[in-house]
Design a binder for these strands. Structure first.
Lengths: 334, 334
DNA sequence: GCGAGTTCTGACATCGCTGTCATACTAACA
DNA sequence: TGTTAGTATGACAGCGATGTCAGAACTCGC
């Protein structure tokens, strides 16, 4: 049978309460008692019951990660980052896919908390902006940290990257290569990052004195198919763009496919840039110039913030990076 | 404050035990009592404490998914499939990345179970073949189901696809197109599926009366880089293959990249086939002919088996499917 | 050598449920 | 009417930890 605190206390000749103190690294345990207890725990291969600790105490040693994102790479990196931090902290991770747009989301979150008594929650974009869910967390006084929130930034601790600057940098790179007609594919409307990236694109054009042309901008949804559709429209223009900057790698992959299908020679006939630097980016042909979003690190930092339990909201901004590969080059002379 | 069973019982004018009976859908509750209790639960927005239920009862309403796989797509599909079934069952899912080769794995699994008292465990390949971990599960009498196990098939319930037949089918397809020199890239040695796929490749060659040539077979590790490396070696042969069949899509992507880099025209100069049908396959150029592995369905079926709690091990085999895209074609005449 | 403060320890109630068991009620049959 | 089997219900203990609190055993300064 599983060993319990009682077994340990009997073996170590102390009260159960003292065992509990050792387990929780509380103060006021003599060196002697501590050693006897630790010895007994090891001998019995004692593992405390999470359920009992949760019921009796104020902690559950579990946190939840709530996400709604259809990019497996993104999710995977988020999970990996949070997970790594949880291991260090000795805390379990409950994965909670969800639908950010659902009216039941707040209720689900409430249920999750009431049932599991998680010690904290990490929200990844776009669930970060489901205000009703945030209300629910706050009503219950559950600490939470948001990854790349799009709104109400003051409301909680959060981690993020500078989407505007990143898109500005990438656009600037294309301009520096000599491009003047630069297409842009907007991301999913649910994600506030989409607006920010569009803004960065416009800011860079503006600074370079290039007119913003709405016809060069298409709406996408962060997926491959919408990238293909947008590319088809852009390349059918009488004066097609010489470069296309897609708000994420999946859509950029769609652009590459359309270009190949049309028999264009890349990057001579068309430069293509993405955003995220998912594994996909380096597996495409030609390898994709993109913005490296520090997803794993963001997730790790978010978990760190959660465990630090700051009084006031803290915001951490992590650096992005331009990853230049073979999908971008100077435009062919007209 | 959160409502407890006591609050519900007071409001419904029954004992706490009766509330518990309704909650657990036990027999022997009058229609009248049931309705009053349900009403009270709804009014109070009652959510049972998972910790208390676990401590008092024999179930924890949690299962764990243990995996060690570096393909985000694969993991994502596995998670999604298991998750979908958990939702239906009202059970929470604990995600547990791990290292299948680690000597501590069994200990970690033991700790997981002792601490969380999960009701069951789903293992995905290659953790399925960590025998020490299986021992640990059996010692504790925890039901578990394996997804695509490689060994000791009789030992537990499992779900799988027919890797041999799938690889045979794909190889057969290439032969039917007219290929005679067909390269093959083996998967990671940790995964038993790797051997099975190799065997399927050989079986198809054999049936077609084509000699098996070791020089056309290279070892890979299921990742992009190893696909590139293998392709470089194969294409440097004096008589290079006219088709390359990689044991997964990531490695096939590496082959495509090498082919592009060498200026080959695809699929005329080289046919390329993959395995898995991850999202990647359709995002590459040319779109990849591959085997659709029903990953999500396998995961869903595994969870279903787990909840069914069969007496004896049950095995379910799900069908694969050849997905023919533009990366394969008849070889150019010599 | 005494009070004050700090360190250490254990008794006991308690967290919110479920398992066990005793009991009461109902319908069906001899 | 009495017996039996099936149905319905609640009292109560207990799951395995932690929180609270009281008290004992050490320090220290004077």
């Amino acid at each position: 049978m599983r060993a319990t605190i009682k077994d340990v206390s009997a073996l170590a000749q102390v009260s159960t309460k003292t065992v509990s103190r050792v387990l929780n690294k509380e103060r006021y345990v003599s060196e002697d008692a501590r050693q006897r207890v630790e010895r007994a725990m090891a001998d019995l291969n004692f593992r405390p019951s999470a359920a009992a600790r949760t019921l009796a105490g104020k902690r559950s040693f579990q946190i939840a990660l709530i996400y709604d994102n259809h990019s497996p790479h993104y999710i995977h990196q988020i999970q990996t980052g949070v997970w790594a931090r949880c291991i260090e902290e000795g805390v379990r991770l409950l994965a909670q896919p969800s639908d950010a747009a659902s009216t039941q989301l707040a209720d689900e979150v409430g249920g999750l908390i009431d049932q599991t008594q998680v010690d904290g929650v990490i929200l990844s974009s776009p669930v970060t902006d489901a205000l009703a869910a945030l209300d629910e967390l706050e009503r219950r006084g559950i600490p939470y940290v948001r990854i790349s929130p799009g709104t109400e930034h003051g409301r909680s601790s959060s981690v993020s990257m500078d989407d505007v600057q990143a898109a500005d940098d990438m656009t600037g790179h294309l301009i520096a290569l000599g491009h003047r007609r630069i297409g842009f594919i907007i991301g999913h409307t649910n994600h506030t990052a989409s607006d920010l990236r569009l803004f960065g694109y416009r800011r860079a054009l503006d600074r370079a004195g290039i007119d913003f042309e709405p016809k060069y901008v298409r709406q996408g949804h962060f997926d491959f198919a919408s990238g293909e559709a947008a590319a088809d429209v852009l390349l059918d223009l009488p004066q097609p763009p010489t470069a296309i900057f897609a708000s994420n790698d999946d859509m950029a992959a769609g652009v590459l496919t359309v270009a190949h299908r049309r028999g264009l020679s890349l990057p001579r006939d068309l430069s293509v840039a993405g955003f995220d630097d998912t594994a996909l980016a380096s597996q495409l042909w030609p390898p994709l110039t993109t913005v490296r979003q520090p997803t794993r690190e963001l997730a790790y930092a978010a978990a760190t913030l959660l465990f630090e339990r700051q009084e006031d909201p803290v915001h951490r901004r992590l650096a992005h990076e331009l990853v230049l590969r073979a999908s971008t080059a100077a435009p062919a002379p007209e």
